[in-house]
Amino acid sequence: METKYTDLIERHFNDLLNQDEVKRVKELLANDKSFQKEYELFKSAQFVVELNTLRQLKENARKLDIENTAHRPKTNWILMAASVLLIAIVGTLFFSQNNYSNENLFNKAYFPADDYISDLGSDETRLGAAMRLYNTKQYPEAVGAFTTIELSEPQNQIAKFYLGQSLLQMDQMEQAIKTLDKVSGDYWSEAKWYVALALLKQGKEAEAKKILLDIMDADEDEAFVLKAERLQNKMNSPLRKFVTH
């Protein structure tokens, strides 16, 4: 199809039109059927070219993925046997020290949450008073104080977060999980991190892993994304599987 419009449309698609011509193209597109038809043909051709490139990139990705898999080291049975023996010895050592147990992973990963808010001028408030109880490790009293705040201010995420922390300190895992699971906003990633740890301590590995994945996927707080990745790696470690199953 060659028409009186071909040159104009071609220059339009090459971004070479001046302002008057751009205006003319708009008018023709709105009013001229033969122009519209040729314009659509140009668009279709461009669409075919782009889809073809997408198709080629997709095939290329498939090829590269297959190459990646093929370049993984091939199985060497002697090396494998030696590795198994070594893993068995090391694994036994680890096992005897209970290094990879849920309890141990929890103990290594768990640090009580710091006080992030007392410097924010909250000393004279109910929250400040509750934080003082938390900071002085009076956890049962802190639970009471944070619960009071939470009941009157259900949207107070800080109270919810530290209520969960206090419950963790008192080893009330179920309650802590339920409380921390409801935290949203700035404390979300950290709260989820503690939920994962509490689940791990309870031996609920699959659920803990799911929470770790949620933290990584949400990607909201890099520090906890990294922590989640590290803990996930430890939990998925082949050595751990070897010694704990």
Binding site: L54, L57, K58, E59, R62, D65
Partner: peptide
């Protein structure tokens, strides 16, 4: 899953 991964990666590159 593989089909979608390769196509998604291709779309990302585009």
């Amino acid at each position: 899953a593989e089909d979608v991964l390769y196509e998604g990666l291709a779309a990302f590159i585009m």
